[in-house]
Write a protein that binds this DNA or RNA. Sequence first.
DNA 1: AAAACTTAGTTAATTAAATTAATAAAGATA
DNA 2: TATCTTTATTAATTTAATTAACTAAGTTTT
Lengths: 387, 387
Amino acid sequence: MQRGTFKWMKSVNKTMILNKIRLSGSISRADIAKETGITPPTVSSIVKELMDENLVKESHLGQSTGGRKPTLLQLKEDGYYVIGVDAGSKTIKGVVSDLVGNIYSRTEVEVYSNITKEEFLKSLSMVVEQLLTGYKQHMDKILGIGVAMHGVIDVETGTSLHSVNSGLINVPIKQTIEKIFDLPVMVENNSRAMTLGEYWFTNDNAYNCFTVINIGRGVGSGLIVDNKLVHGAQGVTGEIGHVSISLDGERCSCGNIGCFETFVTGDAIVRRAKRCIANASENLTAEEVYRLAKRGKREYIQILEETGKLIGIGIVNFIHTVNPDKIVLSGGVMKSKEFLLPSIQKTIHERVLTDKLRLETIIEVSKLGDDITVLGAAALLLNELFY
Amino acid sequence: MQRGTFKWMKSVNKTMILNKIRLSGSISRADIAKETGITPPTVSSIVKELMDENLVKESHLGQSTGGRKPTLLQLKEDGYYVIGVDAGSKTIKGVVSDLVGNIYSRTEVEVYSNITKEEFLKSLSMVVEQLLTGYKQHMDKILGIGVAMHGVIDVETGTSLHSVNSGLINVPIKQTIEKIFDLPVMVENNSRAMTLGEYWFTNDNAYNCFTVINIGRGVGSGLIVDNKLVHGAQGVTGEIGHVSISLDGERCSCGNIGCFETFVTGDAIVRRAKRCIANASENLTAEEVYRLAKRGKREYIQILEETGKLIGIGIVNFIHTVNPDKIVLSGGVMKSKEFLLPSIQKTIHERVLTDKLRLETIIEVSKLGDDITVLGAAALLLNELFY
DNA sequence: AAAACTTAGTTAATTAAATTAATAAAGATA
DNA sequence: TATCTTTATTAATTTAATTAACTAAGTTTT
């Protein structure tokens, strides 16, 4: 929207109020006015609009503090729904979610490697189609479709420029899906979508500089500054899997040596285990390393602790570069968190530059678990609504 | 300013117009309206205000394109002055500059190691005092004082929390200097100030994600996203000198092993030269390495090229984490740019993830040279004026 | 229990500042 | 000279916030 116009000013105020309501759970008009600095009549009139738009509802009366009881306002969680799709390299998963991340239905289809553009888009639209079946009567309540996909995305056009895993190039996701379903579509890189998901659905937005680091088959991260995802110049921020933490070592799939990825992904853990443990199985998997560690096998525990240390080094690098308030860890590898987290924490404590960083940087494992990506995709739409 | 008010809306438009004038050199009201989307009457009335405030002037008439000639507007560069101070660990340098970075006068005082808070503040105010002597009659034309200082700064209170080099802790710079001179004071970390300086005075602001990397006695960086310096949670962003690029190696002053700093600072270059070159002088300095390389000494050239490669690795790490449009290199070490830059470029080309990154990430050496820090300090005030 | 005070929220009048429409200024073109 | 273009300003209008007054619904004091 054109900045500096009346409409824009109003939308800024509306957004402020809507967010205040969302983040406080329930709040009176008077308190909104106090906390946002917007005057009471303006609050009243905008709240009226928000109620007309089905975004906000009056819930109950609050406690009096010496005068008239406040009418508390709440977000009308199920006033609208969004569709979130996680387009992975093995499966495409989709959900219908409401404004606060409650999931109402799920679908999933498998995709095969060497899939073509057309097949991929067909599978994607199949997932959306299935999710929408229950909502044909209420299409006006569907805000839109968010798609999270690995690789480099052009967010403006909603095109997947290229993804290493599935080998797809220049897939016009937004254009295609918008045409089929006549709904707004937003496409984002999966790490960034995850970051948004965690930020929206588990966060009190108190953190101005927020990060998710995803450690699975690769390592990626997303960064939110001032409530906005940082995209960088070519939309490749957060490729911290290809930050080099060693001058020697294995060659990475990207061609370089010493990439963070070559030390901490599931495959890397397996490789290291095989190298260090004499009687390791030929078909060892990362899941099995975890299982064996849980059974108390010392060598496997040690492998995971070592992995934790390496993850810690990568995180410290990130902290020293960006200094986020909070770092959330997610991804398959983090399922071994009971073994990883202590050594991650220890490494960070040892290596971080200042006491303040040590004490104040929050490190957590994602609370959304496997749903982080689909919910992140859904959050893409909410981000438009609320900001 | 409170968001969503009339005043705020106006100030946003005013800022947009002022910047449009600054960045285009000279432009007509009509073109401002076209390019900003603000309506002509609004442009006219705001321009009138800007002229009253001595920030903008009418220059000459432009070419007609089939109608009335446009009256071109320009920034009134010398309408205001700012003071920029570079509080280093060896000297405190200060300048008086105008709105576009022209320097009108300079001062410099030495500071001794083990300086006390009081002595430091006295030296600092001495520098400012000397700079102000010529301007006593026109104090209203001085916008304020910017101070760039190494170490961790609390930007809100303008306090130097702690600086490793000079050992100072909790120095209330803003509070003290504002009291003495009755002028607005802004304090910022030196790397970030440098970034702002380069951004303001050499940049067309076309870059949305802009970085300066400073390689001198330490390594620091600053990052501008959406025209704003990124500060991070504890104000320690950009400490890329303490990003670990090796799992083994020398111990850094920070206690860790493998820090980027231990490979690429002046001291690191000297250490590596001594280690690799049999007949190296006992008192070798980084300057001398450069001199010897310029004289064609193969071994010293190789040392610098190796340094370039290591700098390249650090830069690639930064690119993969943040993906800036443009990286400007500054600092003492970059005086050897003729030897460093080619191998930096080569390393980046080899190691960067995608073709787009390779082709589109701009790497340059600072055009402001040694003035980058004082001008950056000055830019702190302009940043307030223009945004 | 009535009066006085508090807090919440709305209504009406006012104001800031952008927008629209009309017009003037100054030149180009036919 | 008449007409058309582009630039810029003026006057009238509109948007949406602000201020002030007021109603609603309590609590506290007397």
